[in-house]
Design a protein around this nucleic acid. Structure first.
Length: 298
DNA sequence: TTCGCAATAT
DNA sequence: CATATTGCGA
């Protein structure tokens, strides 16, 4: 069956597995006998071209979204950023320097003709009431994203960890200040609550936070805003640039997280429902790790 | 202008 | 539930 997904169910995912890590769509997932046994329509198997076509549709949808965002952004400033080279795919190796400060703002946009679109479920319009407003899909704070967030927050002291800065340092394409502000707010509530009752039972509610390494360095950190490690080097060892990519909303409720058992000082628990579609061979990407960075915080 | 926060909204 | 938005006083 196909799971229904309502429009704003679009999620964002980061570090999607590479093509090699995915089960080829050209593969027949259900054995013929089994299929017929359950009266499942024979569904012609996809050919490489089918897949490619679908892929293109999906992709162009994404680009459409991006360009909407981008040209809206350019309206706001003088310098254009050549964005012809979308690195939505694996070319995520872009080594970028965040000090450029020329971040085009991500703004919503009024759109005229919502092109038919393909099966991509991306703008499952039915913009009944949504008017012509294109809403940015809700950001999903995957463990990867959250980790980045934590890293950055840990490096800036509490003093400098403000939405704007955090957002810049995280250097995640598409991430807005609001996204960060919202998350930060929640994060603060969480940490506050944790200090109050450091011992409380594991509130299953705090999935994300509960499952991350403690940002144990949330302490003070004066310094004139410059980050230095022990060598006195300026550094920003974070992943060069992740791309927050809108993920088709294949609702993935269903699975629960692992035990969270906790009570001590260090959070343990782990992966929660954030890891979409049950493919375990998901580890293929490097975004999954917690990259302990020398903290210049002290 | 941005932050921080609570109250809402979706 | 997790996020987004909004309103307001710093």
């Amino acid at each position: 069956m196909v799971e229904e997904v309502n429009d704003d169910r679009l999620l964002w995912e980061v570090g999607l597995p590479g093509a090699d890590d995915l089960t080829p769509l050209t593969l027949q997932l259900i054995p013929a006998e089994l299929a017929s046994a359950f009266r499942i329509s024979p569904e012609s198997s996809k050919t490489m071209t089918d897949v490619n076509r679908a892929s293109h549709n999906t992709f162009s949808s994404l680009q459409r979204w991006h360009s909407q965002v981008e040209d809206m952004a350019s309206m706001n400033n003088s310098n254009f950023k050549a964005f012809g080279e979308e690195r939505i795919r694996e070319e995520t190796l872009t080594e970028k320097d965040e000090t450029d400060g020329s971040d085009p703002r991500k703004i919503r946009r009024v759109e005229s003709g919502d092109t038919e679109e393909a099966d991509s479920a991306i703008c499952n319009e039915d913009d009944s009431s949504a008017k012509t407003l294109n809403k940015r899909p809700r950001l999903v704070w995957t463990p990867q994203l959250h980790t980045r967030f934590i890293e950055v927050v840990a490096h800036l002291g509490i003093k400098n960890a403000v939405p704007k800065t955090i957002m810049q340092l995280m250097n995640v394409e598409g991430l807005t200040r609001e996204n960060v502000a919202s998350h930060l707010q929640k994060y603060r509530l969480y940490t506050k609550r944790m200090q109050g009752q450091p011992n409380e039972g594991p509130s299953l509610s705090d999935h994300l936070f509960n499952s991350m390494p403690a940002p144990q360095s949330l302490r003070e950190f004066g310094e004139s805003g410059h980050l230095r490690n022990t060598n006195g080097h300026m550094e920003m060892p974070y992943q060069p640039q992740m791309v927050a990519m809108p993920m088709m909303g294949m609702a993935n409720r269903g699975h629960v997280g692992m035990p969270i058992g906790y009570g001590g000082g260090e959070p343990v628990g782990f992966h929660n429902q954030y890891n979409m579609v049950q493919h375990r061979e998901w580890s293929g990407n490097n975004f999954g790790y917690y990259h302990p960075v020398a903290s210049n915080d002290k």
